[in-house]
Design a protein around this nucleic acid. Structure first.
Lengths: 183, 183
DNA sequence: CCAATTTTGTAGCACTTGCTACATCAATAG
DNA sequence: CTATTGATGTAGCAAGTGCTACAAAATTGG
C-alpha cells in the first residue's frame, strides 16, 4: 500500500546483502544508495539518516544469524563445554557463515570506535550469541557457567578474527584443534 | 643531526601513543598531525603519506607488544596447551594490555576492509603472536601443533573482542574459565 | 475533477578528506 | 658573503561526506 514502506523494506534487504558482501568498506550514503538501487535523496526519505539505514540492514542480518544458529542446533539436551565449543567452532567456520562472521568483526571494531549505530547493534548481536550458547550449555560442574559461555563465545569470535588476517587453512586447523579433548 | 629524522621519530612516538589511546577513531591527516604536535603539512614532510605515518606508528607499537610478551613469559620449558592458554589469557587481559588488544581488534577490521597500511600491519602482528605461542607450546601429543597454536591465538583474540562489546567483568570471568582444566 | 498529500528529482550547502603548489625562512657549504 | 639546500608556513584544490531546500510530479481522497 504505502510505496514508501515497500521501498524501505526492499532497500533494507538490498543493504543487508551489500553489507554481507562488502563489509563496512563501502558505506557512504551514496554508496549505500547505489547498493539499494535508489538515489541518496530517496534513501534519506526511507530512513531518517544513514545510521538508521545501517541499523535496519544490520537488524535484518542479526535476525538471519539468529535463525541460522537456531536451525543449526535446535534446543535439546544440554552439552558440556568441550562439546559445545567443538560444535560452535564447526558451525561458525562454515563457508556459509564466513561473510556473517567477517562483518561481525567489522561491526565490533566500529562499535569500539563509537560509530553510530554500531555500539547498539554490536551489543544486540553479542547478546544473541550469548543466549544461544547459554541455552545449550550444561552448567553442571561449572563454577561460573556465564563465564564459560563467554569463553566459548570468545573462542568462536577469535576463530573469525583469525580468519580475517591469516593464511588460508589456519582457521580450519584451529577449529579442528578445538575439537580435541583436553584443550 | 638531521632535524627531519629527529622530528619523524618524535612524531612516530606521539602517533603511537595517540593510536593506543584513541584507537583508529581519529586518524584523519589533520587529527594525526594534531596528535603529533605538528601541522598536517609537516606530517607529510616527515612521511610520504598518511599510510606511511600510520605504518611507522604501528611498527613501533608492534615492537612494544613483542617486548612486553617476551618479558612476560621468557622462553623456557615448553608448556601444554591448557597451561599456555591460561597464561596467555591472563597476560592479555591485564589492564596494561587492554589498549593494545583493543587497537589490535580495530587493526584487524581495517585490514579486512583493505585499508592501507593495515593488511600488511595485521599480518605482521599476527605472525608475531603466532611465533610467540609456537615457541612456548609443547607439541608432544598434538596432532597439529600449528593448529593448536592458532586456536590459542584465536582464544586470546576472542577475549579481546569480547572485551570491546560486553559488559564489564564478563571478559575476566571468561579468562577465569579458560584456566579451568578440561575445557 | 480539484485539492491535498505523498513521492521523487535537481541542485546544492557546509564541511572534511588526502594532498600539493608556492613562497619563505634558516642553515650550511663554497 | 653568496648560493644552495633543507625546513616550514599559507593557502588551496579536487573529491567526497552527510544532509537539505525547493520544486515538480504522482497519487489519493473528496
Amino acid at each position: 500500500m504505502a510505496p514508501r514502506d515497500d521501498q524501505r523494506a526492499r532497500a533494507t534487504s538490498l543493504l543487508a546483502a551489500h553489507l554481507l558482501h562488502s563489509g563496512l568498506a563501502a558505506t557512504s550514503l551514496r554508496q549505500l544508495a547505489a547498493a539499494a538501487g535508489v538515489s541518496d535523496r530517496m534513501l534519506l526519505y526511507y530512513f531518517a539518516d544513514k545510521a538508521e539505514a545501517l541499523a535496519a540492514a544490520m537488524a535484518q542480518i542479526a535476525s538471519d544469524i539468529g535463525a541460522q544458529l537456531a536451525d543449526a542446533i535446535p534446543l535439546g539436551p544440554k552439552l558440556p563445554p568441550a562439546t559445545l565449543i567443538a560444535i560452535a567452532a564447526r558451525i561458525t567456520t562454515t563457508p556459509d557463515m564466513k561473510p556473517y562472521m567477517r562483518l561481525w568483526i567489522e561491526v565490533v571494531a566500529a562499535s569500539a570506535r563509537g560509530e553510530a549505530p554500531f555500539p547498539a547493534v554490536a551489543r544486540q548481536i553479542a547478546t544473541g550469541f550469548r543466549i544461544w550458547i547459554e541455552a545449550r550449555l550444561d552448567p553442571a560442574g561449572l563454577p561460573d557457567p556465564v563465564g564459560t559461555a563467554a569463553l566459548i563465545l570468545a573462542t568462536v569470535d577469535g576463530l573469525a578474527l583469525l580468519d580475517v588476517c591469516s593464511e588460508d587453512g589456519i582457521t580450519e586447523r584451529a577449529a579442528q584443534a578445538a575439537q580435541l579433548p583436553g584443550i
